[in-house]
Design a protein around this nucleic acid. Sequence first.
DNA 1: GAGTGGTCTAGACCACAGG
DNA 2: CTGTGGTCTAGACCACTCT
Lengths: 232, 232
Amino acid sequence: MGVLYVDIVDDIKNKILNGVIQPGDLLQPETEMANSYGVSRTTLRKSFALLVNEGYIYTIPGKGNYVCKPTGKQYELQFDEIENLKCKIDEVSLLDVKVVEPNKKLMTHLMLGPLDRIIRIRKVTYCNKKPIEFIVVYLPYEKGNPIVEDVIKFANFHDIMESNRLHFQIKKKISIEIVKPNDEVRKHLKLNEEYVFLISQQIYSLEKNSILSYNEFYIHGEHITLNAETKI
Amino acid sequence: MGVLYVDIVDDIKNKILNGVIQPGDLLQPETEMANSYGVSRTTLRKSFALLVNEGYIYTIPGKGNYVCKPTGKQYELQFDEIENLKCKIDEVSLLDVKVVEPNKKLMTHLMLGPLDRIIRIRKVTYCNKKPIEFIVVYLPYEKGNPIVEDVIKFANFHDIMESNRLHFQIKKKISIEIVKPNDEVRKHLKLNEEYVFLISQQIYSLEKNSILSYNEFYIHGEHITLNAETKI
DNA sequence: GAGTGGTCTAGACCACAGG
DNA sequence: CTGTGGTCTAGACCACTCT
């Protein structure tokens, strides 16, 4: 055959698929199963590691290895506020940079108090000479924050975070909604009554346990499709 | 102090974060690095496996281990056409079940020809007595297809796929858009001019390399927010 | 051929579940 | 206490890359 531990993985997967072992079932002890496959426990454990990784089994130390119950609602989504747009970008133009006082929403999203100050950077993305995305970036005001300059200079927010190995220490969350844009957004996107995608994003610093940035992307519905798929 | 291989993982992560080793850099050979950490190569390799898994390094056999370049646009999204809705569901009512001829869009999405037949199942989800989601499920017509009955019987499409360990052999893709609903959708959702989320979903059978189902979920924008976050 | 990662073993000791 | 998984070792052999 091929590689031992892969063969074992395939064999166990098949047993699960064919119902020979069922979700929730306890597997044989590792030592025992290693013997029946005629391999060392180390090799068998390598197979198990793979199966755990792919969501087939899980382990409870001191008890044993169990077949997973299905979940399967988890998708992988790629999002980038520039690259995900359907059309070719002419320009990302800087609207303004301003220090603002936090309202309630911003205090929540940036985990700041009413006395803190916030830098707001606004941009518009153009495509075929038409504005299709309105970007608002909020950063906590810190003296000489190097990110501010980068945000002004570079079009793509994701790329900024990826420069300088910063991405290894951050976590990002997005939420995707349809909203009726307010007058401000409508003005900049030259919209009438159309609804837009609002993708809001929080960026966490894992190291300092604070929020590095809160962003809002208002995107004309015609110009974006988000795609996601299940893993494995 | 703690577990050896975890300490090594942390040490290497720190070296990457502090720029001691840079994206693209080749790491020391495994044997050599194992010696400098004073561990066996097996243990070191366990650390490396973790780092590969978390996206810090990658391996080229015969050459060596390299520090990854950042990507960081990958999010994890949970989607379930029932559980993701913001409000409490009253009912998921079955509208109709019908055998239909494929149009071009369906032929593409279900990978069928013009002579094949398709079963279409339509449902409406109610919340506070108001229709908020319009579900259309398309299944390739097969004599005695057991899925059809399940789709009619159960509200939640994801749950169907998860029953009977079916989920282990399928792959799902979704795409998320804003659309102006057509008259049909508008009628069932009792909408005027509002835009809706359209989440379309393809479900692949890994085993038979075919498409098990193509579904469309039209969801009133007020009643859903999709959340996603980066891994690790 | 020398050097790299990939696979595999046999055996040791530990921490934790459970009776 | 026994049995389970978790960690770790030292050493063997292979397949691959590069020169």
